[in-house]
Design a protein around this nucleic acid. Structure first.
Lengths: 197, 197
DNA sequence: CGTCAGAATGTACAAAAGTACATGTACGCG
DNA sequence: CGCGTACATGTACTTTTGTACATTCTGACG
């Protein structure tokens, strides 16, 4: 077996990348030294040399996925700002982003990991706050939060169903969520239903 | 160590219940014969006697969680139908359901498992279709689907953030999603933004 | 061209986990 | 009351996995 050229940084990156792909495909818990080594095409020892413990390796891989997400969030922010954060514009961007299966799966994997890992959970909160923060100036805090929550639902829908949601459905929902509407009408409805108890 | 009474069905149930709790708390992949046995208070051998393989055990536990969910879906359907599927009513029910941490975590665990397990995935699709099916007669297929997607987002929000969403926020979003509104206005907006490309 | 720090590799060992099974025991039945 | 079946239990075996490390090799530097 021919020995590789010396290139620590590249090798470390390969290992992290392989681990990140495994997380996406089979989940964090299925990541083992041996699977990562096989996927990266490096000997088992390489994984232990660069990461003293398996948790370190997992954390590095999750960190890489988080970094990917940060980049995409920034790109999305720029794209959304560029057209004034309209429901139709957001819907088009979101629908298009659903076609990048790898990216969507990365999002899902990180959210899933966030449930049991406090550090990742912190990141996930920050992430959703970012989405809200660049809609809020236009649509207000609450409606922006609701939209962000809805878009999370869209993400999960695409992970469970074969066909992603239509752009029109996303658009119409965002219009309803983001556009000041009949909230006052609803208040009286709520009061009425509450008085019935 | 005193030997237990003979009661196969109860014992099987205890094992499945323990496994289901473990799935909720630490995830499907963290379920092992030994952890389940410890949690259920039975010897290791009991878990292998009732389930020939670990996958069988996991499947049974997931099945139990699915059964719980089916019951709750049915209860929810009844409660929603009882008050005419109004946004305010749904919001109140959903917000209240968020207080049952165990139930919410079970929902989340099953959705998460659905990503990698085709059988569970099938269930998850059926589940979301059920939600849609009892909103659709009142609000139409598309808006009901959007509402169901939004509610999934609400579920995930509660798993990531410390405080659940306000009932008012949920209500207002549902009003926007379910109420026929300015969809035609949006269509022209979409056309305008599209013509800019 | 020698040399040596640091990197690459293969292997080995201990812990954990899946699984099989031999043995012991409760309880329905004759 | 004996007895056999089916369940209960503990243990042992095998595989998988995390981790350590001895050895080999590369390439930069004097």
């Amino acid at each position: 077996m021919p020995r590789r050229r010396r290139d620590p940084e590249a090798r470390r990156r390969e290992i992290v990348t392989a681990a990140a792909e495994l997380i996406i495909e089979v989940g964090v818990d299925a990541v083992s030294h041996r699977k990562v080594a096989a996927r990266a095409g490096v000997p088992l020892g390489a994984t232990t040399q660069y990461f003293s413990t398996l948790d370190d390796l997992r954390a590095a891989a999750l960190g890489a996925l988080e970094a990917e997400i940060e980049v995409r969030v920034e790109q999305t922010r720029a794209a959304v700002m560029a057209e004034g954060a309209t429901p139709a514009g957001i819907a088009r961007l979101v629908r298009k982003s659903l076609d990048d299966a790898r990216a969507i799966q990365a999002d899902r994997a990180v959210v899933t990991a966030a449930v049991h890992d406090p550090r990742v959970r912190e990141f996930a909160r920050h992430w959703s706050d970012q989405i809200v923060s660049f809609l809020a100036p236009v649509h207000g805090e609450d409606r922006s939060r609701a939209a962000s929550v809805f878009l999370d639902g869209v993400l999960w829908h695409s992970q469970i169903h074969d066909e992603p949601l239509d752009e029109e459905l996303i658009r119409d929902a965002l219009i309803g969520i983001l556009t000041p509407g009949q909230a006052s009408v609803s208040a009286s409805t709520a009061a009425a239903s509450r008085s019935r108890e």
